[in-house]
Design a protein around this nucleic acid. Sequence first.
DNA 1: CAAAATATTTAAAGCGCTTTGGCTGGCGAT
DNA 2: ATCGCCAGCCAAAGCGCTTTAAATATTTTG
Lengths: 366, 366
Amino acid sequence: MNLKQLSDQLGLSQTTVSRALNNYPEVSEETRERVKLAARKFSYRPNTRATGLATGRSMAIGHVIPMNSTDVFNPIFGEFIAGASKAYSQQGYELMLTMAPEDSEESAYRDIASKRSVDGVIVHAPRVNDSRIALLQQLKLPFVIHGRDSANESEYSWIDMNNRRAFYRATRLLIDMGHKDICLVNGIETLNFAWRRRLGYTDALNDSDIAVNTSLTYSGDLTEANGFHAASNALTQTTKPTAFLVSSYVGALGVRRAIHNAGLTMGRDISVVIHDDELSYFQNDGDIPQFTATRSSVRDAGERAANMLLDIIDNPKKGPLTELLDAPLTIGESTGPARNWSEELSSDHCTTQGTTQGTTQGPVNN
Amino acid sequence: MNLKQLSDQLGLSQTTVSRALNNYPEVSEETRERVKLAARKFSYRPNTRATGLATGRSMAIGHVIPMNSTDVFNPIFGEFIAGASKAYSQQGYELMLTMAPEDSEESAYRDIASKRSVDGVIVHAPRVNDSRIALLQQLKLPFVIHGRDSANESEYSWIDMNNRRAFYRATRLLIDMGHKDICLVNGIETLNFAWRRRLGYTDALNDSDIAVNTSLTYSGDLTEANGFHAASNALTQTTKPTAFLVSSYVGALGVRRAIHNAGLTMGRDISVVIHDDELSYFQNDGDIPQFTATRSSVRDAGERAANMLLDIIDNPKKGPLTELLDAPLTIGESTGPARNWSEELSSDHCTTQGTTQGTTQGPVNN
DNA sequence: CAAAATATTTAAAGCGCTTTGGCTGGCGAT
DNA sequence: ATCGCCAGCCAAAGCGCTTTAAATATTTTG
């Protein structure tokens, strides 16, 4: 059923039917009702492509997910998009997803812009000194960045969490608990978020006059395996860390595995603080959360980013919008006072810790 | 730059330019070259909406992700889509993503169909007796299902893995290792994949004359927390399981945590077999993988499903296509012979296991 | 060299919608 | 009764492309 057929049915012109459906005032309430009823009855929905051609708007937003050479699809993208799509469906927009390998990223954006298939884009995972910002400004395609480019002075819209501050706080917490050898397991540090997190980490160490030990900082895709390898490696260093600061829940799972493998207990022997994006299948809550964490819902960020972009599209004269989210620190089971490795060798063999729950089946050594 | 402007530039008609770009034969090679050069120079790309209107094809595929009431965004969707989008970008298609809450799922599909914004859809997470199949058949919208509906006898295209067989095999393996009390931590069993997995599990038990103990089977969203709670609960049952069969890596992380919390060691005290969808940030490989697992790449499935759908769209006369993927079983570190709980109480206190790696710092009890 | 055949190009219609610019008829004011 | 106004409706143009039908160039053929 298309507009012509519907208006023929009703004995009205296409103009009137279109106006009735789009709530234009020059239609009598009576006909409007009649039209809307018929539209529902025949489940008529205007053809998106035709509407788009006529209005010059496509009612769609593009999300371009960068795929790096390791082909890892970061789970936070999925969660972010789940949030964003909520905003879109509320406002009648569609979501167009593009996966762009690093080497064809620029052409992906150019494509989107010249094909005019979306009204705006969300930019994911900005790098330090990200060329996409200038590109999109030049292409005159409205955009909102999830994150920022700390090296870019120009005006653009973004929504970000306070990465530096969060990691400053987290590091500070560990220092206050007596930790000095803190291992950072970070994301890829050409990405702005990871770069700022490192900044928070080093700033906190510097402020407490603790030298940064670069053999205790790791950077890479935030996979379980990378977390595991980083932590396993760190635990063999001469200055063994007493605490880990991990940039994601997923990475922390690897870190936890390494800690267990080394015969240690997280929260007692080794402290771990993570950043928690609140992925829906990894809730880190309850009375006492598993991990001490800075947390900020990436799904919520997605919804906010989407609304921000739609706002910008509706009101183009509005200057760039920005929003900085805070990531509060919550204490969980994974942190405790620093342990002094040298003093404690072979001290408390076979003493059962009070925190054990469940049936205990004897000691465990890996 | 649009077609008119481009053809004015070249002093040619829109017809010729359009034909030149679309490789129609009735254009001389010389002009074709000239046109393509100019198109590149001005980075001209045809307006998708206009092309779509003219051709009646939108060159886009819809993915409708069901969101259940718990609002969990299953990570396999992201990974599947990453695979599918590879196929789309190769063939010039776009990917339109819709998140549909359970209660508005039908209208989401109707919407997509009548708005004509996509040429076909991929259906995710089919249920047993899924109403979407009949709906899409009636709407005459080409579709491919990721999974199947075992209760639906009609003809439709799908790609699925052999869920029953995989779980039969996995259960069988555990039985062969002496396990009898095997706990199943499954997905939501109204979903077809989980239903078939349970079938494989019960079939294997039945074939070995082991009664199914329903207090050892769990069904729910495959989150870390659910895996943890299921396993924690199972370990307090009177007939304590010696093995777990877990439907996802993520769920297994929770199971592993529960095992550790109970002071047990995975692979020695308790065996775990999982199904591994090969999520990119949870590689379960290496010489000896962490988990014994049936495995099947969901990203690969996404690419195959997409190609299948595009094939169907190009050749509508072709009958429904189907593809059944096998999920081979790989032995990892998480399985071992069944342990007899009653005989082994307080036997091997403080004996160091040979498999320990890293610096061992004394016994660990939770 | 003219006619026929082929190669190359173009004008114009049409895809399904929105929107501009009328047109019509009823009403109050004159 | 006449005029102007306004509410309510409609015809037609136009969005940017593809494609049919037709025109024009170029070759080939007899």
